[in-house]
Simulated assay, not measured.
Amino acid sequence: MIDNKNKVALIFGVRNDSSIAYDVAVKLHQSGAKIALSYVDDTKDYVLHLLKELGLSEKSAMQVDVRNEADIAAFMQQAYAALGPIDYILHGVAFGSQQVMCYSLPGSKAPAPTYLNIPFEELMDSFNISAYSLLRIARVAEPFLADQASILTLTYNASQRVFPGYAGMSINKAALENIVYYLADAFRNKGVRVNALSAGLVMTTSAGGINGVRKLRKLTRATAPLGNINAGDVGNAALYYFSDLSKKVTGNIHFVDGGFNIMGIGIDE
């Protein structure tokens, strides 16, 4: 087991017990890290319940809008004052409206919104939350970071491939990966590493609301050499980046998708 005793971890993006960030939070706690979690209105109950399950105080959580630099700063300052310098940050935040992602709802006969008609303002809000927020969090975190800190975000292979039901969000993921590269370089003199996990399709609550996602998961199960993954597989990989094992790894896009990304064609069962 990785020993993270006395390490401090901030986790953005815990949604519920099916989310990747939830699994990462649990594993960081189990490895000995002191954790602090952000939440928004519709995730507050899940976050506070998780803290209760782990025997932690509700003071370990704060409401944070990642579009608001002051919110992020208040969260960082609170964690720093209570726990000490920040060793690990998970950026697990993403949002895209139905119009941005271009998907139809299960059971709906209405056609999916089209890529050509993605509303600009909705796309910009989605970009702000899903991609630029990593840069904003890193900027605010800089004075609070411990030596050899690790920042990790979550991306998806739609940054490089066409997934019609994820269309506009793919723009954000491509931008997010580029931000990872430039942050890795920007932090070179501080020894802070910045990486991304490119997770395969995980059946989160959000994914379950997209029409065709179960068909896609069936395809990936057959196509990926190691089959489908779950949130726990991503959480395990996250622990590598949230440990001394990855002290010299930065600017990396690490696939955790059963090998789906290497395949050139789909394989039907």
Rank of each mutant, 00 (worst) to 15 (best):
I118C: 09
Q98W: 00
A79W: 05
S108I: 03
L90C: 01
E69N: 04
L48N: 00
H91E: 12
V40T: 13
V64H: 05
S133P: 06
E122N: 08
A110Q: 13
A79C: 06
A82G: 02
L123C: 11
L116H: 12
A81M: 15
S126R: 11
V40L: 09
E53R: 14
F95C: 02
P111T: 04
Y39G: 02
D45F: 08
T43D: 03
N128W: 13
L83Q: 07
F127I: 12
I137N: 01
Q99V: 07
M101G: 01
Y88M: 11
L50D: 02
M62T: 04
T114F: 05
A36S: 15
L48S: 08
V100S: 01
L105N: 08
I89M: 06
V100T: 08
L123I: 12
A61S: 13
F75T: 07
P113Y: 09
M62K: 05
L48A: 08
E121W: 07
T43N: 05
S126K: 13
Q78D: 07
Y39P: 10
P106I: 06
E69P: 01
F127E: 10
P113S: 14
S133Y: 02
I72H: 03
A131Y: 12
C102R: 00
S126L: 12
P113L: 14
F75C: 13
A110W: 03
